[in-house]
Design a protein around this nucleic acid. Structure first.
Length: 605
RNA sequence: GCCACCGUAGCUCAGUUGGCAGAGCAAUCGCUUCGUAAGCGAUAGGUCGAGGGUUCGAAUCCCUCCGGUGGCUCCA
């Protein structure tokens, strides 16, 4: 059993099943068109299935699925062997002379550059075909022995999407058909059930049900409106941020939402980041931009006075509201929006201080993650790409390499595991992002810790060093709590809406059994409200069961049932969100318990 | 932005081949006064996302736009 767990996905039977299913699907799709009409691109297995990319004379729709699935089942039933044949590049190109994408792939292989997914290769690759029935594909395998090894009832076509050839939006867009494949119908059913379950904890659904936030067509896409319940969560996050940062020597600043274009020109935003910015607005012949980031403003505060090395590291923090023009198709609930408030700060330091400051930020991440119980994440070092220099990255390769090394060293010295990914940096420097996954499996960067060697120089930031000479500071941009939007989107899914007490939009709901007990309920409500708690009393004429049901629906952590007994004895009967009951608790004891839980930001109920 | 799909009451969703717009929940008003997940009744609520077209007649067919979903690209 343990051995099985160790098996790499690439070596598994499931991988071969899915890879083979992709070929079979490609055959079925090609047969729908006249010979030569359909172009095929690539069709790999993926995490939970497979896809194949096509260029076809007409768009496919989900209505085509039954016919394709039916044909796939036939091919499977016929039990065609998968046969491998190693060929020369010349033979390969001859076989695929009418398939432009395949020819491009073969050329990539023969020039030793790239594999079929466009990834760079080291050694000289072997070129091979796999053939089953009448369908031959350029493919390195592996596959199942023959098509009958696939269970047609473990297989399902899922969706159609546009996908750019080689992932490049300047190249043709192909039609990608996604499918899922499992060993048994039972596995497929479980997979489909899991998808349904994941949808239940989708923050877009929970956010609506729990009345955390809303979007309005008239306000605009990607511009969330926070309702009182959502705003309560924001306030708690900010409170936490203030506390943590105060202890760690940060100072608060505040800056405007717009600035003259001159500043963004100089900072590098207009040259390297303009695509993500709202267009300029003009007043009296001057153009202004909404800020996509807070950094230039903080830099200007740094630059507003002569700075001494004695002032460093200087840590300027702000929950700044930024606006980014994300393309319409990129928006995603709260996770990807156009207006966002960042848990932002900029740390100005000397090169000597860099490692300590950078790792203090990483420690801060870990501290936050402990509080929230976040365990599933990956830290990723995003570095520049040579191709992007002068385009999406400031053009100074020496400093790119130097600062990336500084980050690598710092992370290794601190013993923090990370993966590295080229072409994932900010325009002004390398960064460590914390990658997390949404309920439906999309990947996002949550926290970020970024080096900025570019803006300090561009904006002429300086300090007087110990030798009495002018020096340029390094800057660390950091947002350990991400943006309110993405953080709360993530937390909604992380907790499945069951926020710990300190974060709960409504911490206590008081439920009088009959309206005789309303006065007592109001009395309790006021008492707790005055202590700063978020507490409601349900004075409706519903029966208690219905009131409990409603409170459960809002995932209120504590429900207090009060009737004759409680009124008489100055107690409450506690029902927790998880169904636990503690009857006849003295009011004072409950309040004490609450305050303790809230103060320590406990994840226990 | 691009490809495919979707848009009916505040929410979840019915609405056959084009023929008078529906249900449950929520809301409001009554009644009910109840011990740990739905008490009963009544009322109100919709330019069927918007605009245009086809038709005797459009929620239903066609076009454009807006918004959303799944992807691609991109990202805190």
């Amino acid at each position: 059993m343990a051995e099985k767990k160790e098996e790499r996905y690439e070596d598994s039977e499931l991988y071969r099943i899915r890879h083979s299913a992709a070929h079979i699907m490609a055959q079925a799709v090609m047969e729908m068109f006249e010979p030569g009409e359909a172009q095929i691109a690539i069709g790999p297995p993926i995490a939970e299935g497979f896809y194949y990319d096509f260029e076809l004379p007409r768009p496919l729709t989900p209505e085509d699925f039954p016919a394709i699935e039916k044909r796939m089942a036939e091919i499977i039933k016929e039990g065609h062997k998968f046969e491998k044949k190693v060929v020369s590049a010349k033979e390969a190109k001859k076989e695929f002379k009418n398939q432009v994408y395949k020819v491009e792939l073969i050329e990539g292989l023969e020039n030793g550059g790239f594999d079929e997914y466009g990834e760079p290769l080291d050694g000289p690759p072997e070129i091979s075909f796999y053939t089953h029935d009448n369908f031959t594909d350029l493919c390195r395998g592996p596959h199942v022995e023959d098509t009958s090894k696939i269970n047609p009832r473990g297989l399902k076509l899922m969706s159609i999407a546009g996908a750019y050839w080689r992932g490049d939006e300047k190249r043709p867009q192909l039609q990608r058909v996604y499918g899922t494949a499992w060993k048994t119908p039972k596995d497929l059913k479980r997979h489909l059930w899991q998808i349904e379950e994941a949808k239940k904890r989708d923050h877009r659904k929970l956010g609506k049900e729990l009345q955390i936030f809303t979007f309005d067509e008239e306000v605009g896409p990607g511009l969330p409106l926070w309702s009182p319940r959502g705003a309560a969560i924001i306030e708690e996050l900010e409170k936490l941020g203030f506390e943590m940062e105060r202890k760690r020597g940060y100072q608060r600043v505040r800056t405007p939402h717009i600035t003259k274009s001159d500043l963004f020109l100089r900072s590098g935003h207009l040259p390297y980041y303009e695509e993500s910015m709202y267009p300029a607005m003009e007043m009296e012949g001057v153009s202004y931009y909404l800020k996509p980031m807070n950094c230039p403003f903080h830099h200007k505060i740094f630059a507003s006075q002569m700075r001494s090395y004695r002032e460093l590291p200087m840590r300027l923090a702000e929950y700044g509201t930024c606006y980014r023009y994300e393309k319409s198709g990129e928006l995603f609930g709260l996770m990807r929006v156009r207006s966002m408030q960042m848990n932002d700060a900029h740390i100005y330091c000397s090169e000597d201080q860099f490692e300590k400051e950078f790792m203090a930020v990483i420690d801060l991440y870990l501290e936050y993650f402990r509080i929230f119980g976040i365990e599933k994440y990956v830290m990723r070092l995003g570095t520049h790409s040579q191709a992007g220099l002068g385009e999406k990255y400031v053009d100074n390769e020496r400093l790119w390499n130097k600062t990336a090394d500084m980050v690598r060293d710092a992370m290794r010295n601190g013993g923090i595991p990370f993966v590295e990914e080229a072409d994932e940096a900010a325009f002004y420097g390398p960064k460590i992002d914390v990658q997390i996954w949404s309920a439906i499996g999309r990947e996002f960067s949550l926290a970020t810790n970024q080096v900025d060697f570019a803006q300090p120089e561009r904006l002429d930031l300086k300090f007087i060093n110990q030798a009495g000479k002018e020096d340029v500071p390094l800057c660390i941009h950091r947002a350990p709590l991400s943006t309110h939007e993405r953080m709360i989107g993530f937390l909604l899914e992380h907790y499945a809406g069951n926020f710990p007490v300190w974060l709960s939009p409504e911490q206590v709901r008081i439920i009088p059994i009959t309206d005789k007990h309303n006065d007592y309920a109001v009395h309790l409500q006021k008492q707790m409200f005055d202590l700063g708690m978020r507490v409601e009393a349900d004075l409706g004429s519903e029966r208690m069961g219905a009131k409990i049901r409603q409170a459960q629906g809002f995932k209120v952590p504590y429900m207090l049932v009060v009737g004759d007994r409680e009124v008489e004895e100055e107690t409450v009967s506690l029902r927790r969100r998880d169904g636990e009951k503690i009857n006849d608790m003295p009011v004072g004891k409950f309040v004490e318990l609450m305050q303790e839980r809230i103060a320590e930001r406990s994840s226990d109920l």
